[in-house]
Design a protein around this nucleic acid. Structure first.
Lengths: 107, 107
DNA sequence: CGTATATTTGCATGGTGGTACAAGTAAGCA
DNA sequence: TGCTTACTTGTACCACCATGCAAATATACG
């Protein structure tokens, strides 16, 4: 449980701008350059650059450099596994689950 | 997707102390008083009180008052659903999922 | 009523973080 | 060698926030 609650990861998504940028990349479903991502946001370009680096540091994104362009893409597998593991961990600690019956959280 | 990325919720878990308190309550699997929760943490009692209020505000906890004691408990169902929905949303946006085959994230 | 317990709230402080602008780096191109 | 594009980094500013301590509130118990 404690391992799953990485403060850095939650911190990365705690800022509205950063969450917006990440959601943008999730919905894009393909690698995007910093310039591309910056278009879905009103903040300065440098801010976007920093935010994407933060999201990568938290394990939510990965980057690949091609020439002068940096492509960021979502770590789908990692993120899915994390959220699923969190749901399961919470579910397993649910009072109803110790009764031997189903948990309170529908699978 | 955007609805699921509530910055307030992630902000609530972005602080190490708050995450620790929440994990404590998750593992406890029963309503706990503020005093009880405060024991698993080294910060001042007032800090714990504030943190629990924040976690409740984010929808991660609920509280019930009994006399002078306030019992906090985890919103198991809500949290499970949220994390599961997040995992699914990310999975659905995964490039591999648009191929008609399975997603990159094991269910 | 007075006292003790449980929790919240006011307040001051130190630290962190998001932002914009400007300067710097790195890579392609003529 | 210059020039442009794509991005990063330095700096300063402002806001917010986590914390501890003290005071306040609320409830129980004599």
């Amino acid at each position: 449980m404690d391992d799953l609650l990485d403060p850095a990861l939650f911190k990365a998504l705690s800022d509205p701008t950063r969450a917006q940028l990440w959601a943008c990349l999730v919905k894009c479903a393909r690698p995007c350059s910093v310039s591309e991502v910056a278009e879905c946001c009103e903040v300065d370009f440098s801010v976007v650059s920093r935010h994407l680096a933060t999201l990568e540091g938290a394990g939510l994104l990965e980057s690949r450099k091609d020439g002068r362009t940096v492509f960021y893409s979502v770590q789908h597998g990692t993120v899915c596994r994390l959220f699923r593991a969190l749901a399961r961990a919470v579910s397993d600690c649910c009072p109803a689950s110790s009764s031997g019956k189903n948990t309170c959280c529908e699978r």
